[in-house]
């Protein structure tokens, strides 16, 4: 690469990408032998649940918010959305606890932990707005109760849980976008940094320093 090419932002970005995330890391065909516990499956199960949530959510969005009250097919798609969210949180919480007990932030993986943590909080916000846009008794009551919490700290001035239009837009557009970006970042960081070695792992005279960062 010529020196002029090296000055290009595009070339610099490509270089950084290739150094940190070559295709062998992105799509690996081997992994460390210590990755052999069932706990490792909960990350990919969480991601799979998110796919089902998005797929069922897209169908619900296309048909509009009243569809599932009126149609059996709509109610079934709503059920798919409902149960995939339940599975998503079950898998994500197990994944989170697993990663905590692995101290998975070790070895410059703090950003991986933090993107995961923020994604967890963003997921709660996204699910919460989902419960608000059900347009049934549950959403009526949740909006009535939740307004007090948000109003109490001044957030209610912008985030109005009783405003169905605002909640619907946040639920189907803004929050999934944020969650999607966080998820992609998290997965790319996992691939780039690799799976954290066991605490006290020992290899060729090098030892893991355990839970200390």
């Amino acid at each position: 690469m010529s020196s002029k090419e090296k000055e290009l932002w595009t070339a610099k970005l490509r270089g950084v990408w290739q150094r940190n995330l070559p295709v062998e890391k992105l799509l690996p065909d081997t992994q460390p032998a210590y990755v052999s516990s069932w706990i490792y499956t909960f990350g990919v199960l969480t991601l799979s649940s998110l796919f089902v949530i998005i797929a069922s959510g897209v169908v619900l969005a296309f048909e509009g918010p009243s569809w599932y009250h009126l149609s059996n097919v709509g109610h079934f798609v709503n059920s798919l959305h409902f149960w995939s969210v339940q599975l998503f949180f079950i898998f994500m919480v197990i994944h989170l606890w697993g990663k905590f007990w692995m101290a998975a932030w070790r070895g410059r993986r703090v950003a991986t932990w933090m993107t995961g943590g923020i994604a967890f909080v963003a997921s709660i916000a996204t699910a919460f707005t989902g419960y608000l846009v059900q347009t049934n008794f549950d959403s009526q009551w949740i909006s009535f109760e939740a307004k007090d919490g948000f109003n109490s700290v001044g957030v209610g001035a912008w985030f109005t849980v009783t405003n169905l239009g605002q909640m619907l837009l946040l639920h189907v557009a803004f929050l999934p976008l944020i969650l999607g970006v966080l998820t992609i970042l998290h997965v790319l960081l996992v691939r780039a940094k690799g799976v954290v070695p066991p605490i006290d792992a020992f290899d060729n005279g090098k030892k893991s320093k355990g839970a200390r960062t």
């Binding site: 032998a33 690799g194 954290v196």
Partner: peptide, 14 residues
């Protein structure tokens, strides 16, 4: 080194 460097120990197919 071990935590932050690419794993150089035993691997398995994946």
């Amino acid at each position: 080194d071990l935590d932050s460097q690419p794993w150089a120990g035993r691997t398995r197919r994946y």
